[in-house]
Design a protein around this nucleic acid. Structure first.
Lengths: 322, 322
DNA sequence: TGCGCTCATGTAATCGTTTACATAAGAATG
DNA sequence: CATTCTTATGTAAACGATTACATGAGCGCA
């Protein structure tokens, strides 16, 4: 197994210098047609591929970005990732996915990519930015609280209020909110939007964005007095868990209680009943975020938040109250 | 914003050579205690971090591996990934996740990491290896067909047969199989195991491993004559889709038809009814796969397949026939 | 004392690119 | 014909680490 071909091998075969080979590859228009062809055939003959480490070292630029997600198995994030990848590959960027799994140590480990030169910038979907991170950064979906960092996402409060308005339009008056984990910015924003539309005294049940927490919340919902006729959940996983939990107690959705979700994950249309929910433009969010990150890396960044529109998708989990 | 500190800056500050700094970092026991401390404090004073590109270039080793998955949003893969990451971080390896999304061009693009030096080896979860891939490779979950490549996974035929045996034990005699996409090795192996246990003439309905294909298969199931009393699905997504599709036609699971899944994804316990299914040891699969890949990279590989045990998890989607 | 050994450290080559600068050959201009 | 301007290419210095080899100090032993 002979070693990998280097740019020097190509140069020798084509009878030119390594500089010319490099130019033939990256700026083909500055070399003459004949040498360009000679280099091309030498490349294919040797099977040459650029050594990325060497390029990165020389250019002081990795052409790679870190994408930090809290849970990669969550389809919500993977669809944003698809948008990110789309523009990344179009712009010659590699993406390095880091799944923090809610672990600060892992988060730090991935963020070290920024300083050790593995990545030129980072897309943060985890709602958290440790102090002292230098370099190009864009927060996605979950805004960073104190920091002034470019952001791409939706208006969570407005979307949450939209869900409540939908329930009110169906005739509901006693509406509860199943919220996310405390200290999470999405949780706070969605609670805020809920209370604004449902009234400041409407009940808020704590959850954790998980199926299990939704299931567990069934008891809390049924214990409410007066019992709500509808529940607006801060994400779909909890809505699905809640429906299962209610069913286990013989409470039917939507006949006895209506449920609305948030996010429109893939399973939302496959549950029984199919879940009415708020759909975020995930692909577009990913695309815009990556586009802005590249600008930030190239120093042409515009600061500020970019807010995209959501859509309410009606399925079968909401009905008029009994 | 001053530039990043290099090993030379550290050396100057500590009053030693760059070689000594490198040794103090990687082989601390060969430098004297005093210089080790001097280097340490110089490192923290300068905030020095190793430039990965430089190390990779010099060592001709990236200390990174590519993980090729067909769909990263599928929790089945993300849990295997967790196992992979666990041993990767313990062994100082970085993992680069590539989501092929079933696209051969993307697959090629990611596999080029092996030749351009970005990765030292690859874990293939996508069941496909283009010709001419050189280097350390381990196939995971989906065995590669013609190639002789180290493999870690389960015995799909045996697991499929296990599902059928469970249905038979519940009293079912007319059992159908909802299979995956054609030309997929998992599909073939699971069909094989199904037929071995259900009989060579038992009906096999084509699917595509997606929720939508499961839902669509409801018609085909109900059109079967005689109508089956149970359906063994080749994965959970299709099982969940099928249950939804049957419900839409007023057919109840498990009262009218029993359904069993395969994989035990997170949503399997949250569906109504909760899904009885086959659970693969995903974490262990990921751990073993990464361990073997590191061996392969270091040249101490043992070839051959490594088969782990599955477990049947009983929930509520299987009942005796009416 | 002189020899050889160990231990800690330094010197400098090396990995494979990119790119500033130099150069040489024509072409265009006066 | 001398001069300047293009155009295509070559030369060689980076980039920041690792590591084979050299060196020199200190020690033990005959």
């Amino acid at each position: 197994m002979n070693k990998r071909a280097t740019i020097g091998d190509v140069a020798r075969l084509a009878g030119v210098s390594t500089a010319t080979v490099s130019r033939a590859i990256h700026t083909p228009d500055v070399v003459s047609e004949s040498t360009r062809e000679a280099v091309q055939s030498a490349i294919s003959e040797t099977g040459f591929t650029l050594n990325i480490a060497a390029r990165t070292l020389r250019q002081q630029r990795a052409n790679a970005v870190l994408v930090l997600v809290p849970d990669i198995g969550n389809t919500f994030f993977s669809e944003i990732l698809a948008g990110i990848e789309k523009v990344a590959s179009a712009r010659g960027q590699t993406i390095l996915i880091g799944d923090t799994a809610g672990d600060r140590a892992r988060e730090e480990r991935f963020l070290s990519y920024l300083v050790n030169g593995r990545a030129d910038g980072a897309l943060l979907l985890n709602g958290h930015l440790p102090a002292g991170v230098r370099g190009a950064v864009v927060s996605v979906s979950e805004a960073l609280e104190p920091q002034e960092v470019p952001h791409v996402g939706i208006d969570n409060a407005a979307a949450s209020a939209l869900a409540v308005r939908h329930l009110k339009a169906a005739g509901h008056r006693r509406i509860a909110h199943l919220s996310g984990p405390q200290n999470n910015i999405l949780t706070r924003q969605r609670i805020e939007g809920f209370l604004a539309e449902a009234g400041p005294d409407a009940p808020v049940i704590p959850g954790a964005f998980t199926i299990a927490s939704g299931r567990a919340a069934a008891d809390a919902v049924l214990a409410l007095d007066p019992r709500p006729t509808a529940v607006a959940c801060a994400n779909d996983e909890m809505a699905i868990g809640l429906i299962a939990g209610l069913a286990a107690q013989g409470v039917r959705v939507p006949q006895d209680i209506s449920v609305i979700g948030f996010d429109d994950i893939a399973f939302a249309e496959a549950t029984i009943p199919a879940l009415t929910t708020i759909c975020q433009p995930r692909l577009a969010i990913g695309e815009r975020a990556m586009t802005r990150l590249i600008s930030a890396i190239e120093g042409t960044a515009e600061a500020g938040a970019e807010i995209l529109d959501v859509e309410l998708v009606e399925r079968a989990s909401v009905a008029p109250p009994a």
